[in-house]
Design a protein around this nucleic acid. Structure first.
Lengths: 192, 192
DNA sequence: ACCCATTTTGCAACTTGTTGCATAATGAGG
DNA sequence: CCTCATTATGCAACAAGTTGCAAAATGGGT
C-alpha cells in the first residue's frame, strides 16, 4: 500500500506526467522504492478516480499525449494520514543470501563470481549516492525539506554500505575454499 | 520466484511438514525471506505436483494430518541450477524512508516516535542475531554448511546494523527540530 | 464418552507487482 | 509530405504475496 503514497509525495514535490514520474522513480525516489511505468499509470488512474489527484487541463485528452497530474487537497490529507500511520518494519526479502544458503546444501558451484558481481554493483551504487550527496548538498541541507531528503539519501548510503561490507566478507571467505560440492546428505537440523 | 527455492533449501536441510516450515521461516530462514503458512502450503502443493518433492508415506492422507515432505533428485537439480543463475540485485522497497520523505512535504507530524520505535525494533533484532552468532557458532563454523549459514547470518547483522545506524542519525536530526509542519506549496523540483 | 482449545492443513478472494505487447503523438531527415 | 525512430500512454494476462476463514485431527480435561 505504499505506491500511491510514493506517487503523491513525488507529485507534491513537483507535478509531473506518468513518464516523468517513471524517470524520477529510477532516480531519487528509486533508492527506496521502485515501480515500473505500468504500475505508475495504473495507479495514477486509480488516484485520479479516487479524487486525490487530477490531470491538469490539456488541449487534447487522447492517448499518447502527455498528461500532467497535480495533487488535490484530499490527496495531501491522505498522505498526511499515512505519514502518521504505524506500520511494522518489513521483513527483508532478498534472494542473494538465500542462494548462498542453498549453496551451503547443494554446493557452491559458480556462485562466487555472482557475489563479486553483486558486490561491484552495490559498490557502484554506493559511490553514486555519495556523489549525489556531494553534488546536491554541498553545504548541507538548506531547507527543512532538503534536510529530510538528505536523510533519506543517507538511508540509501547506509543500506548499500551494509551490502558492500557483507559481500566483501563473503567473497573473501569463499575465495579461500575452492568450491567443493557438498556431500549429498540432508542431515541435521536448523541452526538458530 | 524464490519461495520454491527457499523451500527446497529448507527441506534439504531437514525434511519437514508445512507447519514446521512455517516456524522455521520465522526463525533462521526468516532473516532474509519471509512467507506465510498459506504461501508455504500452496507452494508445497505445486512442488509436489511438479515432481520436485514428495510427501513421505503416511497412514491417512486426509486433512488436518501432518504431512512430511522430502526433496527428490529433480528438486535438488532445480535448486542447483537456481544457485548458478544470474540475477540482478533487487531494488529496495521499504515504506519507512518513503514516509520520511513524504514528511518532508506534508510536515513531520508524529513521525518521530515511529522512527524511535523502528530503531528499537531493529536494535532488538540485531541483538538477537548477535546472540545467535555467539550461541550457535561459539568456535566458528565447523562444517562447510555452517560456514555458509554463518555468513548468511552475518548478512542479517550487517543489514540491521545499517538500519540502526540510519535510524539513530535520523532520530537525532529530527529531535533537534520541533516537528513544525511544512508550508503548503508544492514548489521546486526533484533533488538528485 | 464428550467438550473444547490447539494444531495442521487448506480454500477463496483480494491486492500488489511483472511482462509482453499495442496504440497514439512527436519530431528529425529525406 | 512521408517515414521512421522515439516518447508517452495504456491494456491484458500473469505471478507473487496477503487476508480471512474453515475443516479435520489431536490431546487434554471433566
Amino acid at each position: 500500500m505504499s505506491l500511491p503514497h510514493a506517487l503523491l509525495t513525488a507529485l507534491l514535490e513537483k507535478p509531473s506526467s506518468g513518464s516523468e514520474l517513471t524517470r524520477r522513480f529510477d532516480r531519487s525516489i528509486g533508492y527506496f522504492w521502485s515501480a515500473t511505468h505500468q504500475q505508475i499509470y495504473r495507479e495514477l488512474g486509480k488516484l485520479e478516480q479516487a479524487g486525490l489527484i487530477r490531470a491538469l487541463p490539456s488541449p487534447v485528452p487522447t492517448r499518447g499525449q502527455r498528461k500532467e497530474y497535480e495533487v488535490l487537497p484530499e490527496g495531501r490529507a491522505e498522505l498526511r494520514a499515512w505519514v502518521d500511520r504505524r506500520e511494522d518494519p518489513r521483513v527483508s526479502r532478498d534472494p542473494l543470501p538465500l542462494r548462498l544458503r542453498a549453496a551451503g546444501v547443494v554446493g557452491v558451484g559458480d556462485l562466487l563470481p555472482e557475489l563479486v558481481r553483486h558486490r561491484d554493483l552495490h559498490r557502484a551504487r554506493l559511490e553514486e549516492y555519495r556523489e549525489f550527496e556531494r553534488r546536491d548538498y554541498p553545504g548541507g541541507p538548506r531547507t527543512e525539506q532538503e534536510r529530510v531528503q538528505l536523510l533519506v539519501l543517507r538511508g540509501g548510503i547506509d543500506m548499500e554500505t551494509g551490502w558492500v561490507s557483507w559481500l566483501t566478507r563473503a567473497v573473501e571467505e569463499l575465495s579461500g575454499t575452492a568450491g567443493a560440492p557438498e556431500a549429498g546428505g540432508s542431515a541435521d537440523g536448523d541452526v538458530s
